[in-house]
Amino acid sequence: MDIAVLVKQSLDVQELRVDQDTGKIYIEDAPTKAGDIELNATEEAVRLKEKLGGKAIAIMLSTWGSSGKRQKEAREALTRVLAMGLDGAVLIMGEGAEKGDTYVIAKVLAEEIRDKFRLVLAAEGSEDNFSGLLPARLAAELGWPYVAYATAIEVEGDYVKVTRSLEDFEEVVKVKLPAVISVTQEINKPRVPKLVEIVKAKKKPMDQKDFSPHVEPKLVIRELKVPKVERKQIVIEGDVEEAAEKLIQALKEEGVL
């Protein structure tokens, strides 16, 4: 059974610089990476593949431009997931991709997935936008069932048994394949590839394709604003006793004690 893992080229939000005074967001300067939860999806795909045979392939869509820097980062991110044990990767990159919304991207990815895979694994949300819309849209585009927030996955013949965690319930569901499943970070602990695996990963097939959608997006981002978080940032000085007293006094004045 062949498995596709969706890996988004995400902005590394930890490294993203924003200027609260000018409202500028330094997107071009920020590095990109594969999202942390996508490493969990990768780990799960590798484990399933090791048990069941077949291939597991990463499919990456790059939405932060196709400059030399972004090309290099995308390849590095894919090398990382390949080193974890995936068999190959497809990188979809192109000028139009920056304006693609989840509607457009689901259509582009579906063409890459239909007829080739029986199971698609994704993260519950991407590192930079965290909407979780794409796997759901992809499932609808493919006409496959979709189950989100998986904390355990077991394949049994034509079905996949998914344990998932919702706010109020723990659920075990049996889903007919082919299917799209999104995972949470609790599902596993991603392996850390050894150097030799990273070297080998560089020789694995990486297929680059041009992003060429046939449909128009339904959504336009009008503006990105920097939220004003105004914190007092007062450092309480003194020894332990003094600091505790000063803090209590300050909290009383705030009216929160």
Partner: peptide, 23 residues
């Protein structure tokens, strides 16, 4: 925007050919 709600958004939107946003 709870988990069960978010699971529906993308699927319903795509079935309708509609736009979508969460949270």
């Amino acid at each position: 925007s709870d988990r069960r709600g978010r699971e529906l958004v993308g699927q319903v939107a795509h079935r309708l050919g509609a736009s979508s946003a969460v949270d």
